[in-house]
Write a protein that binds this DNA or RNA. Structure first.
Length: 879
RNA sequence: GGGAGUUUAGCUCAGCUGGUUCAGAGCAUCUGCCUUACAAGCAGAGGGUCGGGGGUUCGAACCCCUCAACUCCCACCA
């Protein structure tokens, strides 16, 4: 069979993913095994795969694949999030292209469009995940706005409302006067702009005195309901209890005192406009101020303003400044820089606006979520996030859960138009309830709250409702078999950006509704950045399309590339060259296979001692490394585990083991290999494939089948994770010593820089008796690390090795002096080491304070060093 | 403004309790080599005052202080 020199990833990808699906290897049902569960952080339905998803989901897939191989009942639940804001924006934009304005549609008609859109494009990202090799149980795919899941959200709202955790109140929102909608904080872009600071004087009531305030927004003067100064400000202490007259409108308002004021800024006096500034609003609540809304939703002055009605706020700003100047109340104007919020979508200046919203009280409900992270019931990985988490949880503010959108779960609150409200599931229920307060109520008059719930208010139930959406309704005692079996899940892999938005709330909901944590470990990935450290984003255009990368380097290559540069919790500076490295690795593995499969096996030949040594060595090496790899997995040090795997395969297996067992090449033909060595090699290769499988699922599956005949369901994806056996460290050490010698030989060859052809000529001419040659090779033979025994080598003038790597006889010789020098160096080193250990042991403080086992360790180090020195000295004598 | 984090070779990062197997890895670079599994390869080499300064200690990449740069989160200044 002719096998290509380079690995072709595409064929394996197209072949194995469907095969795995067909044999239901991803499927999971409750059984007697221990479960290992991950629920996917649901990507937005609107989303297309970006590098962040790529990283995230690769890590999850690695974890789940390894768990599967370790014999757990591995279950990875996929799904998508309805993402109200993002999706609604997309749908609105799409409709606009078709000439349809959202305002002209009824809620039902709009939702129909939205669902159509979701059906058409909503599955894209999940299809993309399959290309990556994600081994999700696709039969469990969920969507946060599915009927049952939505019902659970509504039930939770009602339940929390009944428990008194949900209330309705007035809050400042970011209002987009162009889009005529509230937008979330995330959709506000702050930009530094040049603006003007106007100093305006207000007259003190019943006095000739004036107070000067500084403002960037004079148009809001019409809505002022107080002037605020710092209680410690000597300039204004005498004004306690006084009132001021607002210019133009001549309203008389109090002077209030609050430490919120910055003494240094402006004049130290602040005009308070509770309707149009978030801080002023807070002050207003605190000091019980009147709220006068002078700016209409479209950004023009409202009737309440009394002046400039119907004119845009920016025009009014100029006009009022002129008018104030005319009245002699404008003291001066300064140029300053400040930050303005702009709407991400319309680029209009955001207007803070008060509106009625629903809130969830966070104080009580969040307690267990804090405790259980602090007591490590739930691990945050890396731990540095615990601090941030703690800080946030100790300062939680109530969560605004209503959104002025249509796409999402509509709030189950009902109004009778007469000021009566009730919260319940159905219109009929609401009617029955409100009827008691309002006997004349007709069911047609009943109105449901227009707003929908925040997306996070549905996704915070995700690890619960993906298994049993009805559990909220039925109570956790009546949870279905799935939920009982899979909950709590094991790992959550997500981005640190949403630690508060989502992770904290998942934990809260977990304790509130299941009385148990939703997961044990939270692995927080880094943010994928480009080489310049910029976050990868579509708007910057600096993000490669992951699917292009897969096309170019293969899914395995991209997975390896991604994880090679992703330390837990640190951002990763992604560069395509990592994928190249991943691809190269896949190719290396492919070629190791090509070598193995090309061997001619013979049961007639004896197994060489050198092969026995090599087999023993690699067995030890494999066990040694496997243990370290497993340990790194258990600490979620993914890139470390990957690098160790990489080196085990490339350096230890390919560069050393295979070179050693590779038969000699004689007369243009490779000699056959003995059966035992071949069998051992295949078995090792198989173990390595298994260890590589979580990282590189496709190539390993492909090779697993090429290397041996397999039954239909005998696939590496469900193969058993290799077990390590006892490690003979003495043999490992011996081998390391042999490697050193071989390296010395290589170095000598390097000095001459000869090509293989020249080398052959040299060999023929060379005198094998030259001293260097004997020395190096005799050592090798003695250590039996290599197959070329002294006799064999001495006997063969045409000596030479198979694939060149190990020895080349050289004209010229190694001088004994070099060896002496080397030993002398080593001696010096060991003396130094010994000295440092002795100092440590002589240090009273160390001896008194250190743990006994630590001291024991130091003593052992001391003894070892002494022995080593002795041995080296002996060696020096013999030279 | 509040909080957290980072700073170690050209790049991306390891460095557990302060000590000599600790100054490391991978990649990149440079030099040789078309070699019979693999040039997507092989062999070798060169790269670092561990951000700056100070301190504690017999001893500091590691602990303390300080300065600087960068990043993130939260709140946003009238």
């Amino acid at each position: 069979m002719e096998i290509a020199k380079t690995y072709n990833p595409k064929a394996a990808e197209d072949k194995w993913y469907p095969y795995w699906m067909q044999h239901k290897f991803f499927k999971s049902e409750p059984d007697s095994r221990e479960p290992y569960t991950i629920v996917i952080p649901p990507p937005n339905v609107t989303g297309v795969l970006h590098m962040g998803h790529m990283l995230n989901n690769t890590i999850q897939d690695v974890l789940i694949r390894r768990a599967r191989m370790l014999g757990y009942n591995a279950c990875w639940v996929p799904g998508t999030d309805h993402a109200s804001i993002a999706t609604e924006a997309k749908v609105v934009a799409l409709l606009k292209e078709q000439g349809i304005n959202k305002k002209d549609l009824t809620r039902e008609a709009f939702l129909k469009h939205a669902w159509d859109w979701k059906e058409k494009y909503g599955g894209i990202i999940l299809e993309q995940l399959k290309k990556l090799g994600a081994s999700c149980d696709w039969d469990r795919t969920r969507f946060t706005m599915e009927e049952d899941l939505s019902e659970a959200v509504i039930d939770v709202f009602i339940d929390l409302h009944n428990k008194g955790h949900i209330y309705r109140g007035v809050r400042m929102v970011n209002w987009d006067p162009a889009g005529l909608t509230a937008v979330s904080d995330e959709e506000v872009i702050y930009k530094e702009v040049n603006s003007k600071l106007y100093y305006v004087k207000y007259k003190i009531e019943n006095s000739d005195e004036w107070i000067t305030i500084a403002t960037t927004r004079p148009e809001t003067i019409l809505g002022d309901t107080a002037v605020c100064v710092h209680p410690d400000d000597e300039r204004y202490k005498h004004l306690k209890g006084k009132r001021v007259i607002i210019p133009m409108v001549n309203r008389i308002v109090p002077i209030i005192f609050d430490t919120y004021i910055d003494l240094e800024f402006g004049t130290g006096a602040l005009k308070v406009t509770p309707a149009h500034d978030i801080n002023d609003s807070n002050l207003g609540v605190k000091h019980n101020l009147e709220v006068i809304d002078t700016i209409a939703p479209d950004g023009k002055m409202s009737a309440e303003a009394k002046f400039y009605i119907g004119e845009d706020r920016f025009i009014v700003r100029k006009k009022i400044a002129a008018d104030l100047e005319e009245m002699g109340q404008l003291v001066k104007v300064e140029d300053i820089k400040n930050k303005n919020g702009y709407s991400e979508r319309t680029n209009a200046v955001i207007e803070p606006k008060l509106s009625m919203q629903w809130f969830l009280k966070m104080d009580k409900i969040s307690k267990p979520a804090l405790e259980n992270v602090l007591n490590e019931n739930i691990h945050l990985i890396p731990e540095k996030f615990i601090n941030t988490y703690k800080h946030w949880m100790e300062n939680v503010h109530d969560w605004c859960i209503s959104r002025q959108l249509w796409w999402g779960q509509q709030i189950p609150a009902w109004y009778d138009g007469k000021g009566n409200t009730t919260v319940c599931k159905t219109k009929e229920e609401a009617f029955a309830k409100l009827r008691m307060q309002n006997v004349e109520l007709r069911i047609e008059d009943l109105k449901q709250d227009e707003d929908v719930l925040d997306t996070w208010f549905s996704s915070w139930l995700w690890p619960i409702t993906v298994f049993d959406p009805k559990v909220i309704k039925n109570g956790k005692a009546n949870a279905n078999a799935d939920l009982k079996y899979y909950y709590p899940t094991n790992d959550l892999v997500t981005a640190p950006e949403i630690l508060f938005f989502w992770v904290a709330r998942l934990i809260i909901a977990g304790y509130e509704y299941m009385d148990a944590k939703p997961f044990t470990n939270v692995y927080l990935t880094g943010i994928v950045r480009d080489k310049q450290g910029r976050k990868m984003s579509k708007s910057l255009g600096n993000s490669p399309d992951p699917l292009d990368l897969i096309e170019k380097y293969g899914a395995d290559g991209v997975r390896v590339g991604m994880l090679l540069c992703s330390p837990a919790g640190n951002d990763l500076m992604f560069d395509e060259s990592y994928c190249e490295q991943g691809r190269n690795f896949a190719n290396k593995v492919w070629n190791a296979f090509r070598l193995l499969q090309g061997f001619e096996v013979s049961d007639k030949i004896e197994q060489l001692q050198a092969n026995k040594t090599a087999i023993e060595w690699f067995g030890n090496k494999l066990s040694e490394q496997l243990e370290i790899i497993n340990d790194n997995y258990s600490k979620y040090r993914m890139s470390e585990a990957l690098m160790l795997t990489y080196k085990l395969v490339w350096d230890d297996f390919c560069a050393w083991y295979l070179e050693m067992i590779k038969p000699e090449f004689v007369d243009g033909k490779s000699l056959p290999i003995d059966k035992a060595t071949y069998a051992a090699s295949i078995s090792y290769f198989e173990s390595l494939l298994k260890i590589m499988h979580p990282w590189m699922p496709f190539i390993t599956e492909e090779l697993y089948h090429l290397i041996n005949e397999r039954k239909e369901k005998d696939c590496i994806i469900v193969a058993e994770w290799p077990k390590q056996s006892a490690v003979n460290s003495k043999q490992l050490a011996e081998f390391e010593a042999s490697k050193e010698i071989v390296t010395t030989v290589r170095n000598l060859r390097q000095q001459k820089q000869i090509s293989p052809k020249e080398k052959l000529e040299l060999i023929e001419k060379s005198d094998t008796q030259n001293s260097f040659f004997d020395e190096a090779v005799i050592k090798l033979a003695n250590l039996s690390a290599l197959k070329y025994s002294k006799e064999k080598i001495e006997g063969a003038h045409s000596f030479m090795v198979k694939s060149t790597e190990f020895f080349v006889p050289l004209a010229g010789s190694i001088d004994a002096g070099a060896e002496k020098e080397r030993i002398a160096k080593e001696l010096e080193y060991n003396h130094g080491f010994l000295k440092s250990v002795q100092i440590k042991l002589a240090n009273e403080r160390f001896v008194q304070n250190a743990k006994p086992e630590l001291i024991e360790l130091e003593r052992k180090k001391q003894a070892d060093a002494e022995a080593k020195i002795k041995a080296l000295e002996e060696q020096l004598k013999t030279l």
